[in-house]
């Protein structure tokens, strides 16, 4: 029969079965690998999320509960710190109340806004009177590495520490000043070469906090008038 003289590679259906077989092997290997690491990757994401949130109030927390800040943020302790001191509320929106030793330390909000290339997500911690930022950090962004992505650098985050966000009942819109300048109350330092990303941060803070603060305050007013506080 002619078939026997043709080498296996040239037979008609061989390429098809070859590809199917090859694909099956590799997909199986990848599937195994993925499932074995899936849980760990998820746990890491949760841990990173919690660590960032605890970081917002870490300074105040460590003073109030007399625990070293580094110890508070260590991977073994941070989950416990999160569940102990951060109380989640879902009405009228999802936010966290930070309390320790009977003292209200502030509130923590998960905010988002449009960056240059995608959504930016950040945590902003506010003082109990909702006038000052305790700390602010961007935990997720898709900005240009080396430019807009520098929003995650410590110098950018530090400028929001203890910064006035609300003056005389009105949320401020921060204007941008160069990276080398010292910003006034209504200003923030921008990232050199990343003006759009920097103004996105300012817009995000304004839009989100302008929306959130009235909701929180009206809820507390309602709670008070209902005699719950």
């Amino acid at each position: 029969m002619d078939n026997e003289k043709i080498p296996i590679q040239e037979r008609k259906l061989y390429p098809f079965f070859f590809m199917v077989f090859l694909t099956a092997i590799f997909v199986a290997i990848l599937g195994l690998l993925f499932h074995s690491s899936e849980q760990k990757i998820k746990d890491q994401e949760v841990l990173a999320y919690q660590t960032q949130m605890v970081n917002i109030f870490a300074d105040t927390l460590s003073t109030v509960i007399h625990v070293n800040k580094e110890e508070l943020l260590s991977p073994t302790k941070v989950a416990q710190a999160f569940s102990t001191y951060y109380k989640k509320s879902t009405k009228p929106l999802t936010y966290y109340t930070v309390e320790a030793n009977g003292m209200l330390l502030g509130y923590c909000f998960d905010i988002s806004g449009s960056g240059l290339w995608g959504t930016m997500n950040g945590f902003v911690g506010m003082t109990p009177d909702l006038n000052r930022i305790v700390n602010f950090t961007i935990y997720q962004q898709q900005e240009t590495p080396g430019l807009g992505a520098r929003v995650s650098e410590s110098w950018f985050k530090k400028q929001f520490h203890d910064k006035i966000l609300r003056l005389n009942g009105k949320v401020l819109t921060y204007s941008l000043v160069p990276e080398e300048a010292t910003p006034a109350t209504q200003e923030i330092k921008q990232i050199t070469g990343a003006t759009i990303t920097s103004s996105s941060v300012s817009k995000m803070l304004f839009n989100e906090m302008n929306r959130i603060i009235p909701l929180i305050e009206s809820q507390h007013v309602n709670a008070k008038s209902a005699g719950l506080k």
Binding site: M19, L30, F34
Partner: peptide
């Protein structure tokens, strides 16, 4: 086989890159 050579190569390369990607993520 000759006619699926490039596809097979692409598949194998993709698989190993994904392994590296999962490793980094973990």
């Amino acid at each position: 086989p000759r006619n699926v050579r490039m596809m097979a190569q692409t598949l194998i390369i993709a698989a190993y890159v994904i392994v590296a990607d999962i490793f980094l993520k973990e």
